[in-house]
């Protein structure tokens, strides 16, 4: 099975509740560490302006580039659900290696400010998943713009695309994110 995320760009209004809920659930104290990132794009000129938001957690790629380049084999893809996880004990740390950070197209590997900080990233809220709950970002979204679950189920449920403004799908890595884009 392969888990994935669905993002409805037509519903998102850029409130960042997903990002704050993520930090709260995982108790991330490091400033500058974002397991889920919200970006804002503008299109047009005043007064004909359109605004787009893009929410990107770890894409839990089918062929994760981060895992491929990790010299310590600290990054692995779980067989049972396709979730990409990092073993911080094995991670060499940012002072010695930043190959995963360079390899990922979606900025998923994150490092705190501490000396030789170990890689951390979205783990699909595995603790919640074990209890049959959705990730914290999904449950927190007040606009119901996010969903998560088995990727094939998401694709069946939502009329979606695999690319959206500012998100280019890597044919090699096969990110497990699907979108409902806002039309320009």
């Amino acid at each position: 099975m392969q888990m994935g995320f669905y993002f409805d760009q037509t519903r998102c209004h850029g409130c960042h509740t997903c990002a704050v809920a993520c930090k709260d659930w995982h108790d991330i104290q490091d400033e500058g560490v974002d397991w889920i990132r919200v970006s804002t794009m503008e299109d047009g000129k005043y007064p004909d302006v359109r605004v787009f938001f893009l929410v990107v957690p770890c894409a839990h790629c089918v062929e994760p580039a981060c895992a491929e380049v990790c010299p310590a084999s600290a990054i692995t893809k779980r067989a049972e659900d396709g979730v990409v996880v990092v073993d911080q004990e094995s991670c060499l740390g940012i002072d010695k290696c930043n190959l995963c950070k360079q390899a990922c197209l979606y900025d998923a590997p994150q490092f705190g400010a501490a000396p030789n900080a170990k890689m951390q990233k979205c783990n699909f809220c595995l603790d919640r998943l074990a209890e049959g709950r959705k990730p914290a970002c999904v449950d927190a979204c007040p606009m119901v713009a996010l969903d998560a679950g088995p990727l094939d189920e998401l694709e069946r449920r939502y009329r979606s695309t695999r690319e959206v403004t500012s998100f280019t799908r890597s044919a090699k890595a096969k990110p497990c994110l699907i979108f409902k884009p806002k039309m320009s």
Binding site: C15, H16, A19, V20, K23, D24, E31, G32, D34, V38
Partner: peptide, 19 residues
């Protein structure tokens, strides 16, 4: 502003990072 209630919560790093 979406990340404060008037002057309250301006001091929270998580919310300062939002915007």
């Amino acid at each position: 502003f979406r990340r404060r209630v008037h002057a309250q919560y301006d001091n929270l790093p998580w919310l300062r990072r939002v915007e």
